[in-house]
């Protein structure tokens, strides 16, 4: 019971801190002091208190999209085990629901972008769905690998939560490939730097930022919050795959999990600092590389 409470509390409170850590890491790499760790919280609270401007061409889709995105990402977060404790909700095949909850969120985000009737946002929506079509196979290959390794069809079993035994011997090679592939998927899905630049509003480069350009005030705050939430949820899946060995008991798990997530945020921030964003035509190559990585992990297992 306490595990479920801690899980939900982490899910609701923790995500913006990840963004704060990423921004702080980037600032440190650039030799700046940077915004405080809790800046994303202040930003979101500020946005929630503001007024809202709605274009007259928009319909209910525009207003519903952020809320549907937030709720589907939250639902996905309930399905994922954090660290070593089991997820609050788990059933056979829940990884399909997990993947397509993100699909639902994406569908409504892009619909809202198209709803504004702006060519600019339509372009962003087109890019988003193009790249999503490439990240999805990579994600499913990764899930196939995990299912094959663990013999379970539920996220909890795949990520070995709840004191299940470790992966069988000889599974390190496919796991390394899967982690690499999933990391690329994480960067692409959360519009981090080699794929998209979350900091800029330059029309040539942006994917996610351009789609939410017309949202303002509380709706924009919800969008910011749910993108932080998405980073957190996908990061916890990656962490579950990358660290199958940590299996302490009791309360020590939570600090370990939290420090793992903070470490992941530092890695993402470091990558953003040392890499340039890829040119748009090169992005599919990176995503196809992710598919190939996860796919060859699967081939290694079934051969």
């Amino acid at each position: 019971m306490t595990d479920i409470v801690v899980h939900l509390a982490l899910l609701l409170v923790f995500p913006p801190l990840l963004l704060g850590v990423i921004n702080k890491t980037k600032a440190r790499w650039a030799g700046r002091v940077g915004a405080p760790f809790f800046q994303p919280y202040y930003d979101i609270l500020k946005l929630l208190r503001k007024g809202m401007v709605l274009s007259t061409t928009t319909t209910w889709v525009f207003r519903a999209a952020p809320i549907i995105t937030l709720s589907s990402v939250l639902a996905a977060g309930v399905l994922v085990p954090f660290g070593n404790s089991p997820a609050p909700v788990a059933f056979t095949g829940d990884f399909l629901l997990f993947a397509y909850l993100f699909g639902l969120a994406r569908f409504f985000t892009t619909s809202a972008a198209l709803d504004t009737g702006s060519a600019f946002e339509g372009m962003g929506a087109a890019r988003e769905v193009t790249f999503a079509a490439l990240t999805e196979p990579a994600m499913f290959f990764a899930f196939l690998v995990l299912a094959k390794l663990s013999g379970s069809l539920s996220l909890g079993g795949m990520l070995h939560s709840g004191g299940a035994s470790a992966y069988p011997a000889g599974s390190v090679a496919p796991l390394v490939l899967t982690v690499l592939g999933l990391f690329i998927v994480l960067l692409a899905e959360n519009s981090r730097i080699p794929v998209d630049d979350p900091a800029t509003h330059l029309e040539l480069t942006m994917i996610h930022e351009v789609m939410v350009l017309d949202h303002s005030g509380p709706l924009f705050g919800i969008i910011e919050y749910s993108s932080a939430l998405k980073l957190f949820v996908m990061g916890s899946v990656l962490l579950g795959v990358a660290t199958p060995w940590f299996s302490w008991n009791g309360w020590l798990d939570w600090p370990v999990f939290i420090s793992g997530m903070l470490g992941l945020a530092v890695v993402v921030g470091t990558i953003e600092s040392i890499m340039a964003r890829l040119r748009m035509p090169r992005v599919p190559s990176l995503l196809i590389a992710a598919i190939l990585l996860c796919g060859s992990a699967f081939v290694m297992l079934v051969r």
């Binding site: 011997a169 000889g170 390190v172 090679a173 390394v176 490939l177 190559s285 590389a289 990585l293």
Partner: peptide
């Protein structure tokens, strides 16, 4: 030890792909 070896082999394979794609 075996696990470390396998991980290294996989990294070598990945580097092959990146060498081809760069």
């Amino acid at each position: 030890m075996n696990d470390v070896l396998n991980a290294l082999f996989v990294l070598i394979l990945t580097l092959n792909l990146f060498a081809l794609g760069n």
